[in-house]
Design a protein around this nucleic acid. Structure first.
Lengths: 181, 181
DNA sequence: CTTTTATGATTCACGAATGTATTATTAATA
DNA sequence: TATTAATAATACATTCGTGAATCATAAAAG
């Protein structure tokens, strides 16, 4: 089978590249570049693993993520804007994904009785079943490797990423420089 | 101007969703799901910021990332496979990106004298100039917000992500379970 | 030396995702 | 109350990215 993305480069080679960039353009922060590259490579790897698992079931990572975000027991349903925010997908892509899930019988769109601009999203029984069936395999292949981190590291990573996301939110419009905590 | 992705959801709402998922499918680790969601949202946000900055200069995040990875002073040139590994893009997409950069006069492909299967990639002067011009703006809009993390947090994040990437590498073929350190 | 296997890069049909515009509806303002 | 601004969702032309195949070349095996 063709391998589209075979291996990760050594971290030393990445550092060498970043050093060349920082030498070339003073004012660039080496560590910030490294953090960006690391997040990109990790996300790319996790996405690739999800594709591998889900391809066998005619699913895609983005629509599967949307599906599991819609798992709901007695809570308020999500609307497409909320789903977009929670999955990190654009509004247009969220519409496309919802179209796909509705067409497959996994999702139902209901008009919101209180605000006719809004749509309430409900997982259909087939969607719940798909989630129940596929999430263990995705968990095993995509999430379990994160357990290689110690519990302390996972806690630290979670706290740091939450802080970072909160900061990006505040910084969203680029109006105010991010303040150090 | 249309906003395709307006705001981040509150972390509480994300946690509520994850709790619903874990209730629905026992065996799922709440924290691993949260880590995955956080990385996805942060990466999506950083990508969106890059698009905003680069759009004004007729550039795209993926081709710009490739461009800066090719900055090189006296080092060995990269080939497309190495560039693919370092940017997290597939081989096919790396070819497409190189096509685009060559067409714009930013990149040159040279045959490797020692191995005719290989291509050596060299930044053209116009590419160096584009990098020099654009990286400060990208740095300011995309990377500088990471400075909201304390130096200790950034160090911890870097160490953790490096460890995680190394583990994903070992775990690549899904053959051996990831070992805790 | 010949054959087989593997690698590096590319091609391409197809599907995924975006950016902008549109429409319907609700909220805010005058 | 009427008008204007904002919001929610969707449409769609265009661009981006993938998965499998192909070709040329080098390495390994017999």
């Amino acid at each position: 089978m063709n391998k589209q993305h075979v291996s990760h480069p050594s971290l030393d080679k990445i550092q060498d590249r970043i050093d060349a960039i920082v030498n070339f353009i003073p004012g660039c922060d080496s560590q910030l570049l490294m953090l960006r590259v690391l997040m990109k490579l990790i996300t790319a790897d996790l996405n690739e693993r999800m594709r591998e698992v889900l391809r066998e079931h005619d699913f895609h990572p983005v629509s599967f993520t949307a599906l599991i975000m819609l798992i709901n027991s007695n809570g308020a349903p999500l609307n497409p804007s909320e789903l977009s925010d929670m999955t990190g997908e654009s509004r247009a892509n969220t519409t496309r994904i919802c179209d796909e899930l509705v067409a497959s019988g996994y999702l139902e769109r209901h008009a919101n009785p209180e605000d006719r601009r809004r749509v309430d999203l409900f997982l259909a029984p087939a969607g719940e079943e798909a989630a129940r069936t596929l999430l263990p395999a995705v968990h095993s292949r995509v999430l379990a490797p994160l357990k290689s981190l110690t519990a302390t590291d996972r806690d630290g990573l979670e706290a740091t990423l939450k802080h970072l996301l909160a900061t990006l939110e505040v910084d969203k419009d680029g109006a105010c420089p991010a303040a150090s905590r």
